[in-house]
Design a protein around this nucleic acid. Structure first.
Lengths: 341, 341
DNA sequence: TTGAAAGCGCTAACAA
DNA sequence: TTGTTAGCGCTTTCAA
């Protein structure tokens, strides 16, 4: 049995309440007594019992809100799953977690949801951010009013949010480049297809890829970035155009969605395996293409963690007052082939 | 605030105790009343509060023992770290976790440790198994006496243990083959270096690798398996011999330890990058070779999970009576390059 | 500055 | 078969 407050109190010859005050440094206590108690607690290896704490705090319950955007993607479904598991876990300790789903990407709706939560007494909020200024202002305002905010998946850098949980997009691009470098023949030709020029993640991935590939395979010829707007039709058309102009094409890197379109064209032209494809995100259609050999590698984000950890970080903060160790909590960059999917 | 037993009791017009008996199906209760209570609990969406439960059970405390073998490897250090984190987590709920380290691989010592724990009243044990018959008998005996047993890292198949948590070795080998297939030139020559012919994991990895490579790259010439007994010196000598006989060697797959020796020879001969090396286990020296380009891919096991999950599986079983969903809980097969390490 | 006591949700022993 | 009650370890309020 672990050490309890009462045991420390007995040893120190004081009451439980005094020990609690000493250890929580709440003041209203004789400094000498406090020091002595802390020493005893230390010697006995006191570790507060979480169950007791949770129970005692049940009335001032912790309320956490999670605002998830653009639910339609399978990636976001993974995030949702992680968030739900975390919800269940902390609710069993008496907290309340509400997951608010917003279908589109819409900062105004996010801000509205945040205010609603504040009104309802929520003390922690996790959200998928964007770089809208009004959203940044709202985050800062909430933080100053004592509501803990974390961003996940997409950051609002420069704000007062506690931390960001998500992928290091540049590293993801560089990892893709490293893989491409291994599997390309000499003097290969490679096309990068991105999503939106304005999307920060897409941009960082593409830049990371290009910089790294230029560096470690200077013989490779990189064609200019094309944008498919996360659209399979557009990606398919781009692929056809590129293949028409560059019959010698050896590789395609997809920094965003659209792989389905690319794979379709490659399949039709019988180029499966000869044009190497590296794509992002572990989606059903990507997995299918990976298994049938059209895609060589998928670079994944750990969707589950990106939903799970924001809840946990907020809970630890609100329950224990424990700040996250890192401001940037990058999730694993996962490499998947047909064999380890 | 979540639904409590008292609220259900109020609604049903009975006492807390009765509700508890109804929901726990402990008998000694009027079946009709029980059914009614269960219905009400269902409607109200009752979720037992874990903190309350943990606190109430604090006297009949849960004692979990983890027996770890061959601590010298960095992989096992990772396992230990996971086990320690899990220990901390469940001890904060009132349980006790003891991690017993056994330096060598020695089934007798494991069995002795198990008996000691049984004597000390432990009700759950996690261990790194081997295929010794006496160990298997002990596991079955303990299980029948009501002590929950899980194996991790290395299994004791066919015993009554609750589940196994570890890597699917065959899949690891096949994944390596898939990577090798992508990066090898035509008509390449590949050497497989394993650890011990008698080691089940080593064997499954090597077989998985060979079968898959034969299948997807029939042009590749596979040299016979060599054994390095997890020894860097031996691996280095083997590498030298092989390179002497096969100047055209293109790839080496290490199914076990010894990569340090292999990389040293490859470095000395200036073959870095031209002889592709795929190795197992995320060790410091492997990481170094990965970063400097001598190793192309490391296949990792999720060491942390292999320490963390056994504790959690045992705790869930002993705390909630919840059996694990899967008998074989395979951990992720992780692909690491210099970019995502 | 300290102690005493109530109560958080649940279990289990005992009483009815 | 059911109700009652004493805790489990902790926080917090009130009284001293």
């Amino acid at each position: 049995m672990a050490v309890t407050l009462q045991q420390i109190a007995d040893k120190a010859g004081v009451s439980r309440g005094t020990v609690d005050r000493a250890l929580k440094e709440r003041g209203r206590i004789n400094p000498e007594v406090a020091a002595k108690i802390r020493k005893i607690a230390d010697e006995m290896g006191y570790q507060p019992n979480r169950a007791g704490r949770a129970l005692a705090m049940a009335k001032h319950s912790i309320k956490i809100g999670i605002i998830i955007q653009s639910m339609e993607t399978p990636f976001m479904q993974g995030v949702l799953e992680g968030a739900k598991d975390a919800k269940q876990e902390v609710e069993r300790l008496g907290a309340t977690v509400t997951i608010r789903k917003i279908s589109e990407l819409d900062s105004d709706k996010v801000i509205a949801a945040m205010h609603k939560m504040k009104g309802a007494g929520y003390n922690g909020i996790g959200l998928v951010a964007s770089d809208e200024e009004r959203l940044a202002d709202t985050i800062d305002q909430f933080t100053e009013e004592g509501i803990s905010v974390v961003t996940f998946n997409s950051d609002a850098a420069g704000t007062k949010r506690m931390c960001f949980i998500g992928q290091n997009a540049g590293q993801s691009g560089r990892t893709a480049a490293g893989l491409m470098a291994e599997i390309l023949p000499d003097n290969a030709v490679v096309q990068v297809i991105s999503g939106y020029a304005s999307n920060q993640s897409h941009k960082e991935r593409a830049e990371g890829f290009i910089n790294e590939l230029n560096q470690c395979r200077p013989d490779v010829k990189l064609l200019g970035i094309r944008y498919a707007y996360d659209n399979d039709r557009a990606a398919a058309e781009i692929t056809q155009e590129v293949l028409k102009e560059h019959k010698e094409l050896n590789g395609i890197y997809l920094a965003a969605s659209g792989a389905k379109g690319v794979c379709q064209v490659i399949g039709e032209k019988g180029l499966k395996g000869s044009v190497k494809v590296i794509s992002n995100d572990i989606t059903d259609s990507n997995i299918e293409s990976l298994k049938n050999g059209t895609i060589q590698f998928i670079l994944g984000q750990d969707a589950y963690s990106q939903g799970y950890r924001p809840v946990m970080v907020l809970f630890d903060k609100l329950f224990d007052g424990k700040d996250p160790e890192e401001e940037y909590q990058y999730t694993e960059i996962v490499i998947k082939t047909k064999y380890n999917i």
